[in-house]
Design a protein around this nucleic acid. Sequence first.
DNA 1: AAACTTTATGAAATCGATAACACTTTTGCC
DNA 2: GGCAAAAGTGTTATCGATTTCATAAAGTTT
Lengths: 338, 338
Amino acid sequence: MNITEFAAYAGVSKAAVSRYFNGGYLSQEKRDLIANAVEATGYHPSLQAQMLRTRRTRQVLVILPKLSSESCARMVEGISDVLDQNGYQLLLVNTANDNTRELSALNLLQRNTVDGVILIATIFTAEHRTVLGSLRLPLMILGQQYPGFCCISHDDRGAARAATAHMLAKGRKHPGFLGVTMMDKAAGLDRRRGYEDALQAAGLYPQPTRMAIAAFDMESGYEQAAALLTRAPDIDCLFCATDSIAIGALQYCRTHHIRVPEDLMLAAVGNSEAGRVASVPLTSVQLHYRTAGQIAAQRLLDQLAHPHTPVEGQVLDYALIPRSSTGDALPQGNFWAE
Amino acid sequence: MNITEFAAYAGVSKAAVSRYFNGGYLSQEKRDLIANAVEATGYHPSLQAQMLRTRRTRQVLVILPKLSSESCARMVEGISDVLDQNGYQLLLVNTANDNTRELSALNLLQRNTVDGVILIATIFTAEHRTVLGSLRLPLMILGQQYPGFCCISHDDRGAARAATAHMLAKGRKHPGFLGVTMMDKAAGLDRRRGYEDALQAAGLYPQPTRMAIAAFDMESGYEQAAALLTRAPDIDCLFCATDSIAIGALQYCRTHHIRVPEDLMLAAVGNSEAGRVASVPLTSVQLHYRTAGQIAAQRLLDQLAHPHTPVEGQVLDYALIPRSSTGDALPQGNFWAE
DNA sequence: AAACTTTATGAAATCGATAACACTTTTGCC
DNA sequence: GGCAAAAGTGTTATCGATTTCATAAAGTTT
């Protein structure tokens, strides 16, 4: 049933029906007439027709690199919370760290089928700047600061500093670093800087031989930990850029008679579920993923409501959660400490 | 720029432009003309207008209970793979196990804004049958069999049977069961039946005092394990409906001087990352989540292409992954066994 | 009472495409 | 050459809403 048929059924004009649903001058009499007819027929305006006419889709595109990563999933949950509350729909593109998919996602934007975009990306290339710069849609970048755009990010540098400093404060003198590619500004570069900050504050100098780069998975963490600890066996505390990597390192220790935390302390960033229940519960820094998602979505909706909002970034704080991997016993009865 | 302006620019009729993009009789001459004009202007048809006119949106709605659960995330990844390849967009609704949200999602369907639906639900009520039955859209149900609808599910019963049988085959005589609500047919009912199958095959009888029901999280697993093992301390092997619950049980053992696997064997279903790296690596049954998602999406697209496809369910197989929690040592050098 | 403003109304134009239709031209075949 | 089928074309109606516009009635101010 379309608006014309419905209007005829209700005994009013098309315009009156439209005004009923969108607000506008309408007498109480017609209002009742339409309300009754809606009750009787279950009529509702077609979204597609509304989209075409109003040029607003009430859909937001979320682009992310990997859905089955706990951090991404939580950010999307946060986004979903807010969009849902405001009657917006969430269009999801999982790029799987694949350029082809990322391009097809950006193609969507060109086609103007969404009102706004939230981008959770790890590596920004020159092409990104070009494409994003020419975007006429409201855009939020989630997970890192990218100059010139609205960004919500975590204090990755502070988080890494806190984790490393925690181990140094326990008297360790030979820190090691297990990071990820520096092309990833947040998890790669910023966390390395945080690590170096902590060393500097303790009067130590970062040594390249005590640093290694891994991929984002446990397997790689295992392998790089093996390489690093073979090369520099005197390392007595190891900062890992992600929980997954730290868990890989932990597996290596477990199978090579390296005691954690006695011989080697471990600390990471992420506070994942796996890290909480690992063979040695992992000291890690909690970032507020869900909150970040909520804020990003809210800010996007704000931009939609008030165009020309000034571009400004926002950095969320963090919380260090000490656990056994740095020799911190858990409080009795609490094995899940957030 | 709309099709009229573009057609004028290219020097052809609107119909020719439409035929260019949708296929249809068109001379090579005009084809070139339009191709050049596209190159020059970057014109592309408006999706909204196409949606309105063709009554197809090329969008698929995915409804799920919890995004930040590994199994859900992997299913969505599988769905995304296939939809993406076929030029379909994925609309996501995270119900957070909340009726309000589930209703608003179903409202979307009423509004006809998507071509098809994939539903990942855990608990089906009478209301579900009503709403789903009156749905005029192609629908796939993912994760359990629901009579009368197209379903892709896992062999939950077989999986639970295999996990339990594995422990009984090692000579354990006093099995226990830690499950979830029976309102959840797949993870609740079917897995309990599988547990009972295994007992029966071993000449044992299920005893209510050796069974408990937990929620879906580790905390609840911990609490219910505590209750169960206090009530029936002779239990020497425990089947858990999910990895999370098993990890909770494992934490309880760890803090109460119950040795795993010597005093108590543990086996579960899910094969999650956390279970693989837990303090005692967890024997678990792998289900093919990603594959299930891919199949569901593919079958949905098939339905879209060929309406009136007969309704039939499909059940995917499983693979038991023995690990230390049942006394199975991991093969040397492989700590990640899938 | 006149002059304005606010409220109320429906006809018609519009958003940007596709599909039906009527028509002409080309091709294939006997 | 004749005749049917296939290929190629542009005009027009249509999808289902919103928005403009012209106009009228009601309410408010001078």
